[in-house]
Design a protein around this nucleic acid. Structure first.
Lengths: 152, 152
DNA sequence: TATTGTTATACTCTATAACTATA
DNA sequence: TATAGTTATAGAGTATAACAATA
């Protein structure tokens, strides 16, 4: 099976066996394809994750959403500001605590996620196909172990 | 087996099954640990990859090293400038083509890689341990498939 | 005093366009 | 005309420090 690969076969030394390097390259490949998928609605992957979390878990506080996504609260502020300015999500008052506000998806945000659904699923299917049968589940399991100190 | 997890168990919706999201989180975890490992010598992961490639494949042109690492040549320039300014690597003239120059590790760069070797190996071992027996090889295989259109 | 959110800021990474000197 | 390297620049992502309002 002929496989046209433009790479001139360069020895990368230690890197070729490094988990971190392989993760960086694989993430870059998937991320680029995903960013292109989201271009139809002019949003970025990070913004898309926030919208998806709001759909699945409405009413959370900023710190909760940020922590769930591994984003610092200080960086979350401008990220969410942009979503709010675009009318895709909103901050609403909370009764108990006047410092915090609950985050919600707007109707417009929900409609956008609906429009993106097919494209996002196709993106996911493209890469799942490359992993072969059971490959995706296997990969997700290994990636989860990398982040879990319980496996130390 | 009690497993103290500070996470308040938030539903991430679609994200929890997405390859891209899992890659981003796992990469962030490994990258942060690796950056901390390299702090002893005040270099960044990207700079370390360049030095490792120069050690394994001395004399390559900039475009070759950049392509091998998935870095745009335009971004490679300031990256390598910093390494050259620090005396860790150098550009040397090539006989055939006066436009291009070959890239080499300096003695100081080689010495730095030697000093980092134990720390880098320990970093790698930490994450390999989380993956269990055969887990690392399995992971590297799956990550390679993600980047290879031959598996489409 | 501690917590939630915010501002300001800086550094790295990534991306595009346009230029130079050589080929 | 095409290629290797470079400059300029802009946008994301990520990091720390310090602050205001509220608890």
């Amino acid at each position: 099976m002929p496989h046209t690969n433009a790479q001139p076969l360069i020895d990368l030394g230690v890197l070729s066996g490094q988990i971190g390097h392989a993760l960086r390259r694989a993430h870059a490949a998937v991320f680029q394809d995903f960013a292109a998928t989201l271009e139809a609605e002019s949003i970025r992957p990070a913004q898309h994750s926030v919208l998806e979390v709001l759909r699945a878990s409405p009413g959370l506080r900023q710190a909760q959403v940020a922590a769930a996504l591994g984003i610092k609260t200080t960086n979350f502020v401008p990220l969410f500001d942009a979503l709010e300015a675009a009318g895709l999500a909103e901050r609403r008052a909370i009764s108990d605590d006047r410092r915090a506000r609950g985050l919600f998806l707007s109707d417009r945000g929900a409609a956008m996620l609906d429009r993106l659904r097919a494209g996002v699923a196709a993106h996911e299917a493209r890469f799942a196909a490359r992993l072969g049968t059971d490959g995706k589940l296997l990969l997700l399991g290994l990636l989860a172990r990398l982040q879990d100190p319980a496996f130390d």
